[in-house]
Amino acid sequence: MRGLKKQRRIQIILVAFVALGISTALIGYAMRDGINFFRSPSQIVAEPPAPTEVFRIGGLVEEGSLQRGQGETIRFSVTDGGAAVPVTYTGVLPDLFAENQGMVGTGRLIDGVFVAHEILAKHDESYMPREVVDALKEQGVYRHAEGDAPGGT
Rank of each mutant, 00 (worst) to 15 (best):
Val15Ser: 03
Ala116Arg: 06
Gly107His: 00
Leu120Cys: 02
Gly59Pro: 13
Gly58Met: 04
Val61Tyr: 12
Leu120Trp: 11
Leu109Ile: 11
Gln139Cys: 06
Val18Ala: 12
Tyr142Glu: 01
Asp80Ile: 09
Ala116Lys: 05
Lys122Met: 09
Met31Glu: 02
Gly105Glu: 02
Gly102Phe: 01
Phe114Val: 05
Val54Tyr: 05
Arg8Leu: 14
Ile74Val: 15
Leu60Arg: 15
Arg130His: 13
Val45Asp: 10
Leu20Tyr: 13
Thr106Glu: 15
Tyr127Asp: 11
Gln139Asp: 04
Lys137Ser: 03
Val113Gln: 02
Ala19Arg: 07
Pro150Ile: 08
Leu109Gly: 04
Arg32Gln: 11
Asp124Ile: 05
Thr52Ser: 10
Phe38His: 12
Leu14Tyr: 13
Met128Lys: 04
Glu118Gly: 05
Leu120Val: 06
Leu20Thr: 03
Ala19Asp: 06
Val18Ile: 13
Glu72Ala: 14
Val133Asn: 04
Ser23Met: 01
His123Ala: 09
Thr73Tyr: 03
Ser77Thr: 11
Gln11His: 10
Leu96Trp: 10
Arg130Asp: 10
Gly82Lys: 03
Val133Cys: 01
Asp80Thr: 10
Gly64Glu: 09
Gly91Arg: 08
Arg108Gly: 01
Gly107Pro: 02
Lys6Asn: 10
Thr79Arg: 01
Gly107Lys: 12
Ile27Tyr: 12
Ser65Ile: 07
Asp134Phe: 07
Ser65Gly: 03
Ser40Glu: 04
Gln101Tyr: 10
Gly147Glu: 09
Pro51Asn: 12
Ile22Trp: 06
Val104Arg: 00
Ala98Ser: 13
Glu53Gln: 12
Asp33Trp: 14
Ser40Trp: 15
Gln139Gly: 02
Pro129Asp: 15
Pro129Thr: 03
Arg108Gln: 13
Tyr29Gly: 02
Tyr127Leu: 06
Lys137Thr: 13
Gly105Ala: 15
Thr79Ile: 03
Gly28Asp: 15
Val104Pro: 05
Phe76Glu: 00
Thr90Gly: 09
His144Tyr: 09
Gly152Lys: 14
Val92Lys: 02
Ile119Gly: 07
Val85Leu: 10
Leu96Arg: 12
Ala83Gln: 09
Glu63Gln: 10
Leu4Val: 14
Thr88Tyr: 04
Thr88Leu: 08
Arg130Asn: 06
Pro48Leu: 08
Arg39Trp: 12
Gln70Val: 01
Lys5Val: 04
Lys122Thr: 06
Val132Glu: 01
Val92Ser: 11
Gly107Thr: 07
Ile57His: 01
Leu93Gly: 04
Glu131Thr: 05
Leu20Met: 10
Glu138Pro: 03
Gly3Arg: 11
Ala149Glu: 14
Gly3Val: 04
Arg56Gly: 05
Glu53Met: 08
Gln43Cys: 04
Gln70Trp: 13
Val104Asp: 01
Gly140Val: 02
Ala149Cys: 12
Tyr127Gln: 11
Gln70Ala: 06
